[in-house]
Design a protein around this nucleic acid. Sequence first.
DNA 1: GTGGTTGCAAAGGTTTTGCACTGGA
DNA 2: TCCAGTGCAAAACCTTTGCAACCAC
Lengths: 152, 152
Amino acid sequence: MVTTTADKHDRATTRNTIQRALVLEAVRTLRDHPTSADVYEAVREHHPSISRATVYRNLGVLASRGEVTRVEVPNGADRYDFRTTPHCHALCRTCGGVFDIEMPQVDMASQVTDAHGFSIERCEIVFEGVCAQCQSRGEAHVEKDCGSCHSA
Amino acid sequence: MVTTTADKHDRATTRNTIQRALVLEAVRTLRDHPTSADVYEAVREHHPSISRATVYRNLGVLASRGEVTRVEVPNGADRYDFRTTPHCHALCRTCGGVFDIEMPQVDMASQVTDAHGFSIERCEIVFEGVCAQCQSRGEAHVEKDCGSCHSA
DNA sequence: GTGGTTGCAAAGGTTTTGCACTGGA
DNA sequence: TCCAGTGCAAAACCTTTGCAACCAC
């Protein structure tokens, strides 16, 4: 790989540390929308000395770089998604799992009829409901372990 | 207002306290999507002895009753909205303000092509961008030229 | 009187920050 | 070498909870 002056400039302010690589790898391996705590635990298996602060800082760096997507979940810790292409998420109110939802590319911004001059840059759509597994188990036992839909 | 037996039953488990009335009044008066802290401060003006816990508990009760709407905002405290009809919200990344966004009734759930059996009950759409006021103040340039590291 | 509600304080969970040290480029 | 990055601990933030007293119905 050739490192041009431009490349050098682009990366001038960031270094590639083992910790950052491990955090990125963890998000890409844990494909079920892990929380920062999940990522922390995963990285600790290979690098026990890493601190929570480092995990948080690197998740922030990776998210701002666009290498992972931060998914803000109501009533809970942020999740991180290895997918960086736009898609929606669904939150199961029974097991707390987060699931990907496929939709045709709807240009939400164009649907807006009155934004009062607000300049829309991004749109996040979160569905809430009950996942397939929790439905088939009956939604009665809310606190019970939902064995197969622990997408946490 | 007529109180029927049914009404009595419906309300059997809740009491109408001054604190609850004041919390509801505050949300309806503060029309700019107040946080729980805003509501707390507003209520304290007329009822200095109210506690934060009571404000939180009553906001929860009112939200579950559908008398106010809880708006979950990324990176911050929950907001409360006196409007209870479905609409979207926009978060200004410059000033942190929350604004109402009008859209024609789009049945989001019907747009979903692959929900993997997920039963959709609710849909929350949050736009992110810059509000009109911040645009005219030219405060939108803060992160403008960061082409490659543009955060979501 | 009953039990839903309150106020207080303390705890809870998640994330950020200050600071000295470390190590990648 | 130099400064971004790290680890640790403490703080910041928002919200919930335990408990005794209280008061609306």
